[in-house]
């Protein structure tokens, strides 16, 4: 368990900025104490300092998980966001996509969102911006990447992909072993 190096911090924040933009500051500057990012076996954890103090008493090799896992660094040095980070990212999301109830299951099985399944989309979403996917009842379902901007969405035919799937809450069951 160690601090993120400067390069890795940059990679992490660049990824988060795609989803929540300037709201990253809200994650770092919190009124309820100091929170920080820690790295353990290439996974990044978002931990409050209180928990961190307890965790410091344990040998790093024995720690499996602490705080909330935000994602992991791949072998090529990219950062991959995990579904466990959803609770922290959903409130600050900038680009939101609401799914029709018929398309929910499709998305939760790991498929992309097509125009047909698109219920609503927040305004001025840019192309390839990180997007939060919600059900029509405002329940966050996962992350994606907007495949089309909001304006383009209006024109395309119903079978084109509107949002690329990245992770969804179905992963809690599908890839139980990998999530930590």
């Amino acid at each position: 368990m160690r601090r993120l190096s400067e390069d890795r911090t940059k990679v992490l924040f660049e990824k988060l900025a795609k989803y929540i933009g300037p709201n990253i500051k809200q994650l770092i500057e919190r009124p309820d104490g100091i929170y920080c990012f820690r790295e353990q076996k290439n996974r990044v954890y978002y931990v409050s300092e209180n928990i961190l103090k307890f965790a410091n008493t344990m040998p790093a090799d024995n720690i499996i998980s602490l705080g909330t896992c935000f994602g992991k660094f791949t072998k090529t040095g990219k950062f991959k966001l995990h579904i466990t980070a959803l609770n922290y990212i959903a409130p600050y999301a900038q680009c939101k996509i609401w799914l029709k109830s018929s398309a929910e299951q499709q998305f939760l099985y790991g498929n992309n969102v097509t125009k047909a399944g698109l219920g609503r989309i927040s305004e001025n979403c840019e192309k390839y911006q990180g997007a939060l996917v919600y059900s029509m009842s405002d329940l966050p379902l996962g992350f994606g990447v907007a495949a089309r901007s909001t304006a383009e969405c209006k024109m395309v035919d119903p079978l084109t992909v509107v949002c690329f799937h990245q992770s969804d809450i179905g992963e809690y069951i599908r890839s139980e072993d990998d999530l930590l």
């Binding site: 601090r3 400067e6 911090t9 940059k10 924040f13 660049e14 900025a17 933009g21 300037p22 990253i24 500051k25 770092i28 500057e29 100091i34 920080c36 990012f37 001025n124 840019e126 192309k127 901007s149 909001t150 304006a151 383009e152």
Partner: peptide, 30 residues
């Protein structure tokens, strides 16, 4: 550490956006 992190965030957010053809076209359409 918090300050260091904020500096990094600041540097990322203050990056001058690159000229993006797709983006400007979509704006035009809008």
């Amino acid at each position: 550490e918090k300050k260091q992190n904020l500096d990094v965030v600041e540097s990322i957010l203050n990056k001058r956006p690159k000229f993006d053809v797709e983006k400007s076209v979509s704006k035009q359409i809008q």
